[in-house]
């Protein structure tokens, strides 16, 4: 689907977290992003969204979330627990 260039990682997360089939997973993510499922794979649309939600993008810019930081935001956005994020919270006393 295009990974972090588009919404590929997010749709994959929903398949993994909830066992959703592709259609349902795309609808879920599109709903959270407020766009159509068609736009999930559009680089231009997604670049803007990813940057504004700060959920990580291919460009390594200063000040933008990467790695675990981006995943914090993804977990909140999608309403799922991400194991590594939970581990981070536990190890840093955030939880």
């Amino acid at each position: 689907m295009g990974g972090i260039r588009t919404a590929g990682d997010l749709v994959a997360r929903m398949q993994m977290a909830k066992g959703m089939k592709i259609k349902e997973a795309k609808e879920y993510v599109a709903g959270k992003l407020g766009i159509s499922t068609f736009e999930l794979c559009d680089e231009a649309v997604m670049q803007e969204i990813r940057e504004s939600l700060d959920i990580g993008h291919v460009q390594a810019r200063d000040g933008a979330s990467i790695g675990i930081q981006a995943k914090f935001n993804i977990a909140k956005l999608l309403g799922i627990d991400i194991r590594s994020v939970e581990n981070f919270k536990r190890l840093t006393g955030l939880k």
């Binding site: 990974g3 972090i4 590929g8 990682d9 994959a12 997360r13 993994m16 959920i55 990580g56 990467i66 790695g67 675990i68 981006a70 995943k71 993804i74 194991r83 590594s84 581990n87 981070f88």
Partner: peptide, 11 residues
Amino acid sequence: MEHVQLNTIIP
């Protein structure tokens, strides 16, 4: 795995 998870965004 712990190391990789710090740096990655995709599952």
